[in-house]
């Protein structure tokens, strides 16, 4: 799980163009949206594409996204339980 979380942090920084942020700057439990990293709705769509492209997870229910994208920790948990790639 630790390796997956580190991989996720690098991917998030890469696909969302988070300049000047390193994986070490992102805490596992830190909120990705709102107060935390301050991501927006377009970033959420990018994360949905990332989940599909890299882990083979298709998110069809937007309501689930709210829980899954709370933090790197919640994303990693969901990915480890549902990945097809």
């Amino acid at each position: 799980m630790t390796a997956l979380k580190e991989e996720l942090k690098r991917q998030i920084i890469d696909v969302l163009n988070l300049e000047d942020i390193t994986p070490a700057d992102i805490q596992d439990e830190e909120a990705l949206f709102g107060e935390g990293l301050g991501l927006d709705s377009i970033d959420a769509l990018e994360l949905i594409v990332l989940m599909d492209k890299v882990y083979g997870i298709k998110l069809s229910d937007p309501k689930k996204g709210r829980d899954i994208f709370q933090s790197v920790q919640t994303m990693a948990t969901y990915i480890s339980e549902n990945r097809t790639k």
Partner: peptide
Amino acid sequence: FYPRPATFV
């Protein structure tokens, strides 16, 4: 088929 939302906008 992976369109990038961040590009599309």
